[in-house]
């Protein structure tokens, strides 16, 4: 229901600490980061953008865990296909 796009913080605006310049694939916009309080956002952090506000910081550790799961399934699948090929050759 709600379009959320990942972007990376380029700069926190010095005169307005609630605003950060955020880059989405080479496109930049000022995004309000006032809803992120837990740990101070800084340049280089990835955030999720919705209607001009950052809703959360993207957790790289969690992202990697999910990707590892997907790659694990991919590996198992390839192994199976490989095994299938070999069994046909025999």
């Amino acid at each position: 229901m709600c379009l959320g796009i990942p972007g990376v913080i380029v700069e926190i605006l010095p005169d307005q600490p609630d605003l950060a310049t955020v880059d989405v694939s080479g496109v930049r916009r000022a995004i309000n980061i006032g809803l992120i309080t837990e740990d101070e956002p800084e340049p280089g952090d990835w955030i999720l953008i919705h209607v001009g506000f950052a809703l959360s910081k993207i957790d790289e550790v969690e992202a990697k865990a999910a990707m590892d799961f997907l790659e694990g399934i991919g590996q198992a699948y390839e192994d199976e296909i490989e095994a299938l090929k070999e069994s046909r050759i025999e």
């Binding site: 959320g4 992120i36 999720l48 809703l55 993207i58 957790d59 790289e60 969690e62 999910a66």
Partner: peptide
Amino acid sequence: GRVVPWDGN
């Protein structure tokens, strides 16, 4: 999990 904390915002 990369975006959603268990306890929200």
